[in-house]
Simulated scan of single mutants.
Amino acid sequence: MTYDLSPRPLNPAPKTPPMTWPNGAKSALFIGFDVDAETAWIGNNPSNVDRMVTTSHGGYDARVGIGKILELMDELSLKGTFFTPGWTALAHPAACEGILKAGHEIGHHGYLHKLPERERLEEAFEEIDRGFEALQNVLGVRPVGYRAPSGENFPELLAYLAKSGIRYSSSFRDDILPYRHASHNGIAGPVEIPVNFAFDDWNFGMSSRTSPRPLFGREAVLPLWIDEFEATHDWGGVTTLVLHPQVSGRPMRWHSLRDFLRHVQSKADVWIATGQQIANHFEACEAVSPSI
C-alpha cells in the first residue's frame, strides 16, 4: 500500500460550530465504559484463548466488575454509555442485560475488539456487521454510538459506520468539544465526542505478565483526573471517560472513581450525559450554526 505523507491536516473535520451546553452548564461529562471482557485479550492475540489466567483479567467483567459499576452508577443516580463488543454480549448475556435493564445506553465496540486496519477493509466492515448482529440478537438494540476497538479509525470505516446508522463516535483525541467528521465519498461523517487520554483507566490500572508495566494508585490518578477535569470545565469542554469494568471495577479503583464522580457532581454547572444525549445536543446546535 502506498501512503500519502503530503503535509495536510490528517483529520479534515471542520471546527465545532458555536455551541453552549444545556441548562446553563459550563461543561459536560460523558461517562463511557468499554465492556471488553475477554475480547481485550483475544481480539488482537487469538492465541491467548488458551491462556486462562491471562484471559481471566477480562473474565472479571462479568463475574464482578460490571455489577459493581452498575451499583456505583445507581448509587450516584448517573447514566452512562457502555460500549460493548458483540462477542461480550454473546458470551455474557446476563451481565450485559443488566446494563440495559439499569437504563444505560449500549454502544458499539466492534465484535471481537479487533484493531481496525485500512489494509483489510472487508474484515473491518465485518467486525461492524457482526457487532450489530450480536447486540441486536442478545439485547434487542441497534446502537447509534461507536468507540473504536483499540482506538483506531480511518475514512472508509467512518463512512461505513455512518451508512450503518452510527450517529456518533467517541475515539479521537484532537479536541475538547464535539465536532462533525468530514464526509467521505459523499457520506457525511458521524459526530465525534473526543476522548482525553488522561481519562483512560487502562493506562493506570492494567498490566499483564507478558508485558509488565507499573500500576498507579489513588494518589497518582485521582488528583490527575480532578485537575484535568477542572481545567476542561474551565475551558467549557467535554470530559470524556474511557473506563473498563475490569479496571475501575476493582476495589480501590472503584472507590477512586466514586470520589471523582462525586467531585464532579458537587459542581452545579456540569451537564452529565450519555453519548446519545451529547450527539443530540450537538446536532441541534449544528442545525442552527453549521460548522465553519
Rank of each mutant, 00 (worst) to 15 (best):
P223I: 02
S211Q: 13
P212Y: 14
L241T: 10
L177C: 02
F197D: 15
R250S: 11
K26M: 07
S183R: 09
E105A: 08
P214E: 00
S171D: 10
T232E: 04
D174H: 12
L161K: 06
L257A: 10
W235N: 13
A13E: 03
R262T: 11
W271P: 04
A13G: 02
S289G: 00
G110H: 00
V49G: 05
K101M: 08
D200Q: 05
S164W: 01
V288S: 08
A95D: 08
E122W: 08
E119N: 10
I166A: 00
A89M: 00
H92R: 13
E38P: 09
P178W: 03
I42V: 14
E127W: 07
K163Y: 01
K101D: 12
R118E: 13
G217N: 11
R173Y: 14
D74G: 12
V53G: 10
S47V: 14
F204W: 14
K26G: 04
N48K: 08
V221A: 01
T239Q: 00
V138T: 08
E126A: 13
V49R: 12
L10D: 13
L100M: 04
L257H: 07
V270K: 05
L215T: 08
M52Q: 12
A273S: 04
Y60Q: 02
E126V: 04
P7F: 10
D201Y: 00
I128Y: 02
A91I: 02
R51K: 15
H233L: 03
V49A: 12
P143K: 12
H113M: 03
R63E: 12
E119D: 15
W235P: 00
P194A: 09
G205W: 09
R130A: 11
L241H: 03
Q246A: 14
T232Q: 01
F197V: 12
R218Y: 12
V35R: 06
S289P: 00
N11V: 11
